[in-house]
């Protein structure tokens, strides 16, 4: 029983450690990416925004929350319903 459960825990610790220790190199890498303000024509389009379809996302999250054992990720975990 403990073997299959220890793997995700270890994965979780690694992910957490990576997130805690790596901001500096990750962010310095980020500094070299990106575009200037005048090159944002494509990115400025409404459909290119992350979360552009908030209503659709909320509806999907509600459906999947009630049918599956996973939720959240994109934002906070959803829920707030009995969903039997």
């Amino acid at each position: 029983m403990s073997a299959p459960r220890s793997r995700p825990r270890a994965l979780g610790r690694i992910a957490l450690l990576a997130l805690l220790l790596c901001p500096a190199p990750v962010l310095s890498g980020c500094a070299t990416l990106g575009v200037e303000a005048w090159d944002r024509d494509q990115l400025a389009r409404p459909e290119m925004k992350l979360g552009a379809n908030a209503t659709e996302d909320a509806i999907d999250d509600h459906i999947y929350f009630s049918k599956e054992a996973s939720s959240g990720g994109r934002g906070f975990g959803g829920g707030g319903c009995g969903c039997n």
Binding site: A15, L19, G34, D39, R40, D41, L43, L50
Partner: peptide
């Protein structure tokens, strides 16, 4: 009771690509 925390980074990669990474605990 449910408590959540989320850490995220959003990065413009180039003129036509954007990337988001999130780590969350609940």
């Amino acid at each position: 009771q449910v408590a959540d925390a989320l850490f995220g980074i959003t990065q413009v990669l180039n003129r036509s690509t954007i990337l988001q990474l999130n780590y969350s605990v609940s």
